[in-house]
Simulated scan of single mutants.
Amino acid sequence: MPVHIGYAAMLERFPPAEAVALAALAESHGFTGVMASDHFQPWLPAQGQSSFVWSVLAALGERTTGDLGPGVTTPTFRWHPAMVAQASATLGALYPGRHWLGIGSGEALNEHIVGHYWPEAPERINRMFEAVDVIKKLFAGSLAGRDVRHSGQYFKLESTRLWTMPAVAPQIFVAASGPVTARRAGRNVDGLITTGAPAERLAALLTRFAEGAREGGRDPSKMPKVLQLHLSWAATDEEAMRNALVEWPNGGMRFARSDIRSPFEFEQLARTVRAEDFKGQMVISADPDVHRADIQRHLDLGFDRVYLHNVGRNQAEFLEVFGREVLPALRA
């Protein structure tokens, strides 16, 4: 069975036209899909970008042939879930069988900008799953040709439907970093999304997701398990470490980031990150085989889709080297 290794288009780091061109270049080197980040602000001022993910996804659909989705969007603060459902359904209609919908509970960096109260994590997660219910209702009702409505704890939807739908509703994946959310995802959606973490933590997430799937009467082996994997590859180990420290200090932060509101506040925290903080958090190496082994470990854990984000600006070189030396050696 072919291995599904996709490209992570980081819209907080690259202008939209460049991100689209890099995704097309990735496909030419053997990458098989695109996960595009949904940000209103970059993590750091120096990253310098934050384009509108739904516009970029449409452009990606024109320039590539693989799967594509936002990894992840938050239909709870900036967006009412009905609007996310409409955006997703439109992409699904434009690119049948290619689009999936990744949903998360959000970070203050992106979501606080509309001035809402920023709740604690349990409420954010409950909001996310209610938003999923609204989106699922709209997908199902619209495919059946009927209006739906919703009146819940956090959201209301007056009687309506989506008038543009693909023949099959997009799959919904939920982002989880903890076991409770992973289990709820298994019960309620089509797949799981998470990011790189120590193996024991990821194994626990996959176990809880599988438990939730079985509780929902589904076979977890047939449900997508999606991983976004941050890494730093460059021509030398020193350059790879420099890229990590300058471009992606996020990877060395060992504290929760969901309450940080400003890129400038994030910049101050990033100054505390040191080279040793990346150990066990993110692979930093000039050796493609070291990265190949790390990706293979994640495939062996049970992930069936891995989207790679190389933190340096050396994207073209990374895509060429990994397409030649890493992707062909991976096995499902």
Rank of each mutant, 00 (worst) to 15 (best):
I260E: 12
S51C: 03
A108I: 02
T74Y: 06
S177P: 01
G61N: 07
F318Y: 15
G61A: 05
N126Y: 01
R146V: 12
S142T: 14
A185Y: 06
L68C: 04
K225P: 05
V53Q: 09
A58M: 10
I5C: 05
A203I: 14
R261V: 00
H150T: 11
S262W: 14
S258T: 14
D289V: 08
A167Y: 03
K225A: 09
L68V: 13
F77T: 07
G191R: 12
V189S: 03
G216A: 00
V168E: 15
V321C: 06
Q296A: 04
N188K: 08
H80Q: 06
L11V: 14
D294A: 13
F77S: 02
P170Y: 08
E200Y: 12
T65Q: 12
D287W: 11
K136V: 09
W43N: 07
N243L: 00
S232V: 04
E238G: 03
T90K: 00
H291N: 10
T74I: 12
A36I: 12
G30M: 07
M282W: 12
G280W: 15
G280Q: 13
D147A: 11
D259V: 00
R218E: 13
W43R: 02
V84N: 01
V326Y: 14
Y154N: 03
F129S: 01
R201Y: 03
V306N: 11
L60V: 10
E12H: 12
P263S: 02
L319A: 05
R305Q: 14
P15Q: 04
T64W: 06
A46C: 03
L205V: 08
A167M: 02
D304I: 13
D237C: 03
A59G: 11
A46P: 04
W233S: 05
S151D: 14
L327H: 13
R78W: 01
F155D: 13
Y95L: 00
E120N: 03
R187Q: 14
R201W: 03
E123C: 00
R78H: 03
A89M: 04
E238D: 14
P81F: 02
V34E: 02
E12R: 05
A121D: 07
S55I: 15
S105V: 11
I193D: 12
V306S: 10
A140F: 01
F264E: 15
G102R: 07
L229S: 01
I135P: 02
E325W: 13
A213G: 12
V273P: 05
S285K: 13
R324E: 15
S51Y: 12
E215I: 12
V34L: 06
V290T: 14
K225R: 15
E123H: 04
L157D: 10
E325S: 10
Q49V: 02
